[in-house]
Amino acid sequence: MNYYEIIFYVFAVLTVVSAGVVVFSRNIIYSAFALLFTFTGVAGIYVLLNADFIAITQLLIYVGGIMILLIFGVMLTTNVTNVEITTQTLKALPATIVVAIVSALLVSTMVSTKWAVKDPISVESTTINQIGELLLTKYLLPFEIASIVLLIAMMGAAFLARKN
């Protein structure tokens, strides 16, 4: 095992185990905090995949933004002083079976499919330059539309959340 592999397994275990805690924990606060570790683990995986910029973005937006939102959501909608912050599950057994089958099918497909893998070539140390260039050329239109999406999201959320 070299360092790359050790780091990979550390992040992989962190991601999957904390995601498991998110899903199976009975306490929604635990779930929310476990999700924090999942997002961090995913960011680590991005680094291993030569996606440094995405890793930082992941940390900033997911861990710094979406997570805070979710935790605020949990805090605002649940009476925290109340001990009962549990979230009951619904029709757990059939769902477990179906999801297990779906996941097994997916994993086996992922393993058995011959993906179009090419030999790795030397990569540049950072991808920011290329990403920036693509965002303003090939992905110019999605970039602009994303700004409208964000405007709509901001406007809609402000409308729904404010008191008249």
């Binding site: 999605p142 539309i145 994303a146 999406v149 709509i152 999201a153 809609g156 959320a157 729904l160």
Partner: peptide, 12 residues
């Protein structure tokens, strides 16, 4: 992206 634009506005 287009699907999300139209979905987000319809949610609100």
């Amino acid at each position: 992206l287009a699907l999300e634009l139209s979905s987000l506005s319809s949610y609100v």
